[in-house]
Design a protein around this nucleic acid. Sequence first.
RNA 1: UGCCUCAUGGUGUAAUGGUAGCACAGCAGAUUCUGAAUCUGCUUGUCUAGGUUCGAGUCCUAGUGAGGCAACCA
Length: 590
Amino acid sequence: MNHPADAPSPAPSDFIRDVVAGDAQAGKYRKIVTRFPPEPNGYLHIGHAKSICLNFGIAREFGGVCHLRMDDTNPAKEDVEYVDSITADVNWLISGFADQCLGLKVKGAAPEGRLVDGRQDFYLGEAPAGAAVEPFYASDYFDQIYQFAVQLIRQGKAFVCDMNAEQIDEYRRTGKASPFRDRSVEENLDLFTRMKNGEFPEGSHTLRAKISVDAPNIWMRDPLIYRIRHVEHHHTGAAWCIYPMYDFAHCLSDYIEGVTHSICTLEFEVHRPLYDWILEALNLPRPLPHQYEFARLNLTYTVMSKRKLMQLVNERLVSGWDDPRMPTISGIRRRGVHARALRDFAYHIGITKYDGLTEVGVLDHAIRDDLNRIALRKLAVLRPVKIVLTNLDADYFEEFDAVNNPADPQGGTRKVPFTRELFIDADDFMEVPPPKYFRLRPGGEVRLKYGYIIKCEEVVKAADGGIAELRCTVDLTTKRGGVNEGRKCKGTIHWVSASHAIDAEVRLYDRLFTVPEPDAEGNFKAHLNPHSLEVVTAKCEPSLAAASPEERYQFERLAYFALDPDTKPGHLVFNRTITLKDAWAKEQKK
RNA sequence: UGCCUCAUGGUGUAAUGGUAGCACAGCAGAUUCUGAAUCUGCUUGUCUAGGUUCGAGUCCUAGUGAGGCAACCA
């Protein structure tokens, strides 16, 4: 995509980049390595886009790399369907921006173990260019993570606990020590091995880090680091029946991959001491990663949690994860939004620790700004009203030159056919117009875009009282280049030739919810917008027969549109990406 | 309740002890063969109270308010 008007924005600045810049300058790490680590249990949404732009943006700005890693330590909730969609979404979002920073591993590769000064190390870096690759998976490190757990046991820093979930919860809440806390290393080793070998049922035993029984931060009260799950894993199959918890797996995955800056959202703040404790306890030979937290994105007029998005999908309130009304990356993409607009949005909202609520208007602006520069202008009529130009012969035919993109001098022109019978949009004619209405009215004049000024002489009613057709006259001296081209006429409207127009299914999407904070009272479904999708059959100028999925279109005076994948030969389907700003609608509300 | 974090116009952010700036939104005007875009201008802000300092949005103390965590989820 070519954006001639592009001026490079200054590099973003925020508290995390300040830390990275400091570390880079101090030569603390050989290379800056970040990571984007989604759990493959749902589709990525615009909140993830913020994180992707942050992590890949940092990699890009500091000559580093950002690993895509599936954080797949809970087999009960995960699926390859999500692995695939996540990979596709990330690739799409960074395309043309940070492709070169995408860190993947050699397909099938596992960490290499080695001893450094008698200290156990495991490392798995990104694949060299040209290799067959796949994302990193936390589950690829189950062997190494297991060995680290054994090491912790040997050091007397972990124990097998036989209490059930309720008991553990109560003991942790009240700051009491587990009765199994002081088991011998040998017994712990034996029990942990038997957990691994599948000798115990789920819930009967856990491995817990031996940190504190009554630390003020509850995450430090002997946290669970392994649990039993007799479930097949989407990536490791039946190899394991014990799985590491997030806190144990995440810091070690970061370490194994050589991550330097592990950036996550605010809710993990209280986990950071545990992140650091585990890495420090293991006496690791390479520089340790550090965790930094930023505020997740909250957007008006939508919901963002996976649980709620899942509900919308499962209850068929939307057509799927990629419904264009969804805040998912795939939905936003299907709506016709460019990755560039999403990145631009991420740039403008910044990175802080303040948990705010961003107005969706900021996103809207980023989308319009991108589309305005590249969209091809087209004439299309959404709700057709027939016009008959009574002073033209039945076979009158003429073609106008229409500019493809006023923002692009190299954009060229196309021909649009003009005949005796036309369609205009219902909104552009009113029998009894309000003040300041300067479109067509009985006895009034309006300019046809790229063409002539016409005058409405007669309104012909249909049997049902609606408008059958408008009988107008045309002034053939008023075209651009004509003797009266400069004649004053306040309104200019879009139109198509009735005999040349092609039909298209047009899906008019609007925001999914009617209120800024749909879940404020916890019942977001009560605020679904009943008019979030309206489907019309539009009359389009003939050049749209050659529409392509790569291009974006502005139906002049209406909105931006993109071709939907539902398009079949002979059946065009357009999605409304976003409307043009509408000062007239605003005026009417006053 | 405990622990942690945060607080700058309507919203999102910048200012690293030295002129409170930017973007979005809003309002007004210019321009316009898109009521779009573009251009110009305007309105609106440092949570409160003390303190340190020549000087505080920034540092300190207390308060207030908001959010997060307290899963064999991540």
